[in-house]
Amino acid sequence: MNQNIFVRRFAVLCILIVLISLATVVQTSFLSPSNIQDILTQAAPLALVVLGQAFVILVRGLDLSVASLMASIAVMATAFNATSNAMIPVIFVVAIVVSAFVGLVNGFLVTKRNVSPFLATLAMMIVLQGIRFYYTQGAPSGSLPDGFRFLGTGRIMGIPINVLAFALCFCILGWLLHKSSFGRKVYITGGNPTAANLVGIYADRVTIICYVICSVMAGIAGLFLVGFVGTVDNWVGRGYELDAIVACVIGGVALTGGKGTLSGAAVGALILILIFNIVIILGLPVQAQLIIKGVIIIVAATLFSKASRA
């Protein structure tokens, strides 16, 4: 096996193992089932966003609007003021449709109007934020059916439900990316859009679908996160846009497009959440998370950059 591929595939896993061993040494209860359940419950919403973000990064894009979309979807879900659990599927369908529309606009701007993904999604982030705040006037109210709380924090046979949801999405998207013909098109488009067009792939269409996938995943993550937090506020998921990109980079998805796997990205998300957890176990101030995150981003990116150039 080529050394570069080796680094890409297994460096992430090594980091993960080192982190877990470190945490276990510091605190023996780290590997207890309840702590693992907690960590996974926390990681699931971010991991959902990361799955979508990975698709966009694979086609040389970037989606800065995911966190803003998550909060907007969360606010929208509570706006129904639903009390009956029968409304949950309706809320999910509406959320997915709205998110898909947002993704469509992002994708359209990037492909058809040739706007740089950074700017298109940055603008989308600000627009969504403005609409959300205007609707809530800064103080969101509204309520969710009880079932949402169960979706966000509940467990089936000890496995958190949002982790199950993540597993389901991971299987579907993993099949799509690594087994279906669409997945091949994603890699070709990300690797070389011009070549993709020349071999008869509608690169624009593939790119737009990736943006839609990303936004839909963010919308679903928003619903699970608002279920996890229990109350809605205007900043649900704040910072997830950058964390999601960072998780992808740690997981070996190259920002230049066309390189990386979905499982790598998911492990990246897990590493990020583990780091946050370890900072707390070590008794460091919460703010130290930011410093450690910053160092990890640069180090991980450097490692992958060196590996791909060597």
């Binding site: 230049t256 703010q287 930011l290 995150k293 910053g294 160092v295 981003i297 640069i298 990116a301 950059s305």
Partner: peptide, 27 residues
């Protein structure tokens, strides 16, 4: 310096710096 030395995308490098600085300030 980090950008030219490592060849990492400036978006990531400056994001990392921002995270470190913000963490230090907030501590």
């Amino acid at each position: 310096y980090v950008t030219i030395r490592t060849g990492v995308h400036p978006l990531i490098v400056t994001l990392g710096t921002a995270s470190i600085l913000n963490g230090a300030v907030l501590i």
